[in-house]
Computed example of a mutant assay.
Amino acid sequence: MPVVKKFQVTFDCAEPERVARFWCEALGYELAPPPEDRGAWAACADPTGVGPRLYFQRVPEGKTVKNRVHLDVRAGTGLVGEERLSTLEAEGARLVALGATRVRLLPADDENESCLVMQDVEGNEFCLD
């Protein structure tokens, strides 16, 4: 049986291009050329080809509950303590300036380092860790 090596993460949203632009800025991705049916969907991709493609499709219903799947944006990998918090706070401030919302800080405990819970421009939760 063949092994699947690439995958795409799909977001249901009201404004595909707006959400795609946010994630391009957040992750350093590039926006795909606009579709003929402008507004129905948008996509962005990692220019290095390493990360998954993100696809944003317009749906009629709004978001009503917590995501069952979310992205972890790895800004503090390998950092601990105050250095990690400082890095997360700086990246969180950058993302807030792009339209994200800071939800809460999950402080470090005996098992996990700290992370910031955030929402993108349409309220999709993600962790900045």
Rank of each mutant, 00 (worst) to 15 (best):
D72P: 00
P47T: 02
V80S: 15
H70T: 00
R68F: 04
A14I: 11
L71N: 05
E15P: 03
V9Y: 09
P107F: 05
C127Y: 03
E82R: 12
G39M: 02
L54N: 03
L95V: 04
D46R: 05
R94P: 08
D46M: 06
P52G: 12
V96L: 13
P60F: 08
A97D: 10
N112Y: 13
R18Q: 08
H70G: 02
A93M: 07
D110Q: 12
F56I: 01
A43Q: 14
C24N: 06
P47V: 04
A40D: 01
A43L: 08
E125N: 05
L116A: 09
E15V: 05
R68T: 06
T48N: 06
E122M: 09
L105H: 09
A40S: 12
R21G: 00
E91D: 04
G81A: 07
E25D: 15
V59L: 07
G51W: 03
P33T: 01
P35W: 03
P34H: 06
E17F: 02
R21W: 03
V121T: 15
N112S: 12
R74D: 14
P2M: 15
P16T: 01
V50Y: 08
L79W: 03
P35K: 08
R58L: 03
T10N: 14
E89S: 11
E91C: 04
R38K: 15
P2R: 14
A42R: 02
L128N: 01
L88Q: 04
R74K: 15
T48P: 03
S86R: 15
A93L: 13
L71G: 04
D72L: 01
A42D: 00
A40H: 03
D12Q: 13
A100I: 02
K63C: 11
P107L: 02
E36S: 10
A20P: 00
C13R: 01
G81T: 06
D129M: 07
C44S: 11
V117W: 01
R104Y: 11
E83H: 10
A75F: 02
L88W: 00
L71F: 05
P2Y: 10
